[in-house]
Design a protein around this nucleic acid. Structure first.
Length: 330
DNA sequence: AAGACACGCAACCGCGTCCGT
DNA sequence: AACGGACGCGGTTGCGTGTCT
């Protein structure tokens, strides 16, 4: 009856992942593709639960993850989407494909919640000071702030649409290398602590690979250094000598991790199709890790659905707000 | 300088749903 | 159809790091 057990829960390692484990996991997924998480611990010798492998991959190792600070636009998108969707982080993350649901959840819990609370208490304080004696006034102010947020988000969405079209033209010429190189020319955003942790891992990997040039030997599987390098080359294509240079160096891994940071800096907005089409490999990974139902929906329809959904699910504040001058939004 | 405290990120846990047998 | 494991998701926690006293 049913499937065999997921993994032997005896001797399952917990806690932070080591660079060695990361390499083993990445190499295996590069060779076998994501999914079938149950088989990973058995086939790689990793003493990790399949859940842990999936989590590590989707939240940290998967290509296309943007590291670093959230932009104002992303922040507004999250606030907007959270108001409409609630704490459905996976759904929200599907609109910010370069961010993981875990990242968004953390950002909400650590930053945005406080920010909104502060904003709310600030308004309340003003009420107490008599600056706004009636609830309707405070609500009006609150609404106005939200309207501004939504208007900004709407504007960014429109920009994203136009960018998307532009990038489609670009992609049509060279759907992989061209788009990749075009994005690569844009300088990175200032590194944050989050990004620096990625760099630290990269450095760790670098040191590790120097001390243990034959990474494959430490694993029980047939994981090879070449396979790791091939993964690093993802997006550059096997014929790209430039990619090959970076791939043979540990910096290549860094570029893998930071690749999408560059990409997102260009678009500054959600452009799902663009992201999904960056490379066939990335597309594969995106398909695997996130439901792509939303990615196939044009944003105009998306927004319509969002507001209709919000209206039917009783986000009253937002509805009131959007009703006030929703015509102006769209 | 050092201890206390606050913060933020990565990872774990538990639950609901999906799906294979 | 029923059972039970895999998977995905949201909530929570642990720990490293930065800041304050």
């Amino acid at each position: 009856m049913g499937r065999p057990p997921c993994c032997d829960k005896i001797e399952v390692k917990k806690g932070p992942w080591t660079p060695e484990e990361d390499i083993v996991l990445v190499s295996y997924i590069q060779e076998n593709g994501p999914g079938n998480w149950r088989s990973i611990p058995a086939n790689t010798g990793l003493l990790r639960c399949s859940k842990s492998c999936r989590l590590r991959w989707t939240n940290y190792l998967r290509p296309g993850i943007k590291r670093g600070n959230f932009t104002d636009h992303e922040e507004k998108m999250i606030i907007h989407l959270q108001a409409l969707l609630g704490n459905r982080w996976a759904a929200i993350a599907s609109y910010l494909p370069q961010r993981t649901d875990n990242d968004i959840k953390n950002y909400w819990n650590t930053h945005l919640k406080k920010k909104l609370k502060k904003l709310q208490t600030g308004i309340d304080g003003q009420n107490q000071d008599g600056l706004s004696s009636s609830n309707s006034m405070s609500k009006g102010q609150w609404e106005r702030r939200l309207q501004t947020d939504i208007r900004t988000a709407k504007q960014a969405l429109c920009e994203a649409l136009s960018l998307d079209k532009a990038s489609s033209l670009l992609d049509s010429k060279d759907s992989t290398i061209g788009a990749y190189n075009a994005h690569r020319t844009i300088p990175h955003e200032p590194s944050s602590t989050y990004a620096s942790s990625t760099e630290n891992i990269s450095k760790l990997l670098q040191n590790w690979m120097r001390s243990k040039p034959k990474a494959a030997e430490i694993t029980k599987s047939d994981v090879t250094q070449n396979s790791f390098n091939n993964l690093v080359m993802t997006g550059s294509g096997s014929s790209s000598s430039e990619g090959a240079v970076s791939a043979t160096t540990p910096e290549g891994f860094d570029s893998l991790l930071s690749l999408n940071s560059s990409i997102s800096d260009v678009s500054q907005s959600v452009s799902l199709d663009e992201t999904a089409n960056l490379t066939p490999e990335n597309s594969l990974f995106q398909d695997e890790s996130k439901p792509n139902m939303e990615t196939e929906v044009p944003f105009t329809l998306l927004e319509k659905w969002l507001f209709e959904d919000g209206a039917t699910q009783g986000h009253e504040d937002l509805i009131d707000m959007s009703l006030e001058d929703s015509a102006g939004f769209f």
